[in-house]
Structure formats: C-alpha cells, structure tokens
C-alpha cells in the first residue's frame, strides 16, 4: 500500500503527467453521455453533485479544520430558497441562485459568527444542533410544505431551451463540479488558503502573526455554505421535489464521509471520496441494509490506519 502510494504520488507530481490525466478525465466526462445508459448518467450526475457538496464541506473541514456536522443545512437553505421562490412566487430559476447564495451565506454568517470562537468539539455539536434546527423548521413551517415538502418545482430553461432530461442535468452538474474544483484550487493557493492552514495547524501562533482567526474561519464557513446553497438550488430543480428527510443528519455525515475518505484538504482526494460515496452503494446493492454498516466500518478503519485518506499526502 505504502509502496503503491509512493509510486502514485511521484507519478502524479510531474506537472506534465498531471495535465494529461486531467485532460483525459475531462474528455471521458464530456463524452460519457454518448455511451452511457440513462441509469449510468443518473449515477454520474449524482457523483458530480456530491463532488460539489464535498468540496464545499472540504473548505470548512479540510482547509480550515472545523468539524461541521450540519452541512446539509446549507444545502437545504439553497434547495428551499429555489423551491419556494419558483413554485410559490413564480420567480425565474436563474434569479433564485443569487438569492440562495445570499441566504446560505447569511445562514453561514449567523451560525458561524458567534460560534467559531468556540473549541472544536463544541463547534461540532453546535453545527449538529443547527442542522437539526433547520430541518425541523422546514418540517414545521407551512411555506416549506411541512413534512411532505415541496413538489412540482418547475424545471429551468436557458435561452428558451428547457432542461428536462437526465443528460441535460448531467452536463449542468458536471460544469458545477468543475467550477467547484476550480474555485477550491484557487482559494487553496491564495493568501486566504494559507491563512486557513495556519489556523488549522496552530491557532495561537496564527493569531500572534496578526491573523484574525474568527474572520478567517468565518470566510471558510460562509464560502462552504455558498457551495452547499448553490448545489441545493440545482438539486431542487433536478428532483422537482424536496422534503425535509433529504436533509437529515445522515446526509451531513455522508458528505463528511466523502471528504474524509478521499483525504481532507486535497481536491483530488475529495473528488475520489465523492465517487466512492455514490458508486459504492450502487455497486454493492445486494448488501441491502448492511451497506451503510460496511461504509461506517470502512470509515472507522480509514480513521485508525490512514487518517490522511486514500489520496497520498504531499511529499516534501
């Protein structure tokens, strides 16, 4: 295993190899709809969707080192914003995206602002509680459709062309996933990305170097929230129906699992994690209700024996 990962990381660290891998992968992703069945496309669309969610959570957990156990809440805020605005107020779908970005950013700000100064384990619990509160609110209010949720959310059109087939959504989510990778990459390699790493490694030393740790964490939290919110908007119109059960604690855990599995803080790792997350249950359908148990055990083993995840760590 160790030997394999050394070879892999050496091979990948060559810039030329890396570019050719990326191009090949992009090519495969682009032309997949030509050969794949609808079932395959459905699964792959789901993969791209989780890539976006996992990358969003990765900003919070992987980059800034904050354990967020209520990430599904931001995904819910985005989905409900779009769902309510399009189905009850007749707002154009594309207009709801900036509103959803605003709402999820606000939610991130409201919950993050006062809590990010807390110790890491308290933060985990607060985010867990927050996730449950959002779900319960969605369940109890009338405007969100109560326990049965919202149905009949209209599919969006772009330049008069309506997105209504799986292949359309495949490309929409592929673009979102690529965009999420791009934004994550740029953020990671920036002043802000470095600041996240300083705070993650040693909060006090970071503060002594003049870094406002609360502000830096808040940036991570709000940007992560926006990723989730945008993913939620597109989720709502793809499914045309949303219900509070989609945003349960298990959803947050699943997204976290994707991040941890592949390797926190590493974009290719997180992408692989998202793949594993979606493909594993499809491949092992026969396991039935044991599926999640196997998943949980795999996660435990990874934490105990390879806490840095599947993707090899950067070599010095």
């Amino acid at each position: 295993m160790a030997n394999f990962s050394t070879i892999l990381s050496e091979w990948i660290s060559s810039q030329k190899n890396r570019m050719s891998i990326l191009l090949t992968l992009a090519g495969i992703a682009m032309f997949l709809p030509l050969v794949s069945s609808n079932y395959g496309l459905e699964v792959m669309t789901n993969v791209w969707f989780y890539v976006m969610l996992c990358l969003g959570l990765n900003i919070v957990v992987g980059y800034a080192g904050l354990l967020d156990l209520g990430y599904a809440a931001f995904f819910a805020v985005g989905a409900y914003t779009t769902g309510i605005l399009t189905s009850q107020f007749g707002v154009n779908f594309w207009l709801t995206i900036p509103i959803a970005v605003g709402c999820s950013a606000c939610a991130g700000f409201i919950i993050g602002g006062p809590t990010l100064r807390l110790r890491s384990d308290y933060l985990a619990i607060v985010t867990l509680g927050f996730g449950e509160i959002v779900r319960l609110i969605a369940r109890n209010l009338e405007i969100t459709g109560g326990a049965s949720g919202l149905i009949g959310i209209e599919r969006p059109s772009i330049f008069g062309f309506q997105l209504n087939q799986i292949v359309h959504f495949y490309y929409v989510f592929l673009i979102l996933a690529i965009l999420a990778c791009f934004v994550s990459y740029r953020l990671q390699h920036s002043r802000l990305g470095r600041a996240w790493q300083y705070v993650r490694e040693d909060e006090d030393a970071a503060e002594a170097m003049g870094i406002n740790r609360v502000a830096v964490k808040l940036y991570a939290y709000v940007i992560g929230a926006i990723f989730g919110g945008v993913a939620g908007c597109f989720f709502a119109v793809k499914m045309t129906a949303i219900s509070p059960e989609t945003f349960m604690f298990q959803q947050s855990v699943l997204i976290l699992l994707g991040v941890v599995l592949g390797g926190m803080g590493k974009i290719p790792g997180v992408v692989i994690g998202a793949f594993a997350l979606v493909l594993f249950p499809e491949v092992f359908r026969d396991l039935g209700s044991m599926r999640m148990l196997v998943f949980a055990i795999v996660m435990l083993i990874i934490m105990l024996y390879r806490p840095e995840g599947i993707w090899p760590a950067k070599k010095s």
């Binding site: 170097m209 003049g210 870094i211």
Partner: peptide, 10 residues
C-alpha cells in the same frame, strides 16, 4: 504568515 496582516486580498 507574517505578511498576512500587511496584505489584503480576499
């Protein structure tokens, strides 16, 4: 990290 407080890109 020291230059963080002397720079501003967001």
């Amino acid at each position: 990290s020291g230059m963080h407080c002397r720079s501003s890109a967001g």
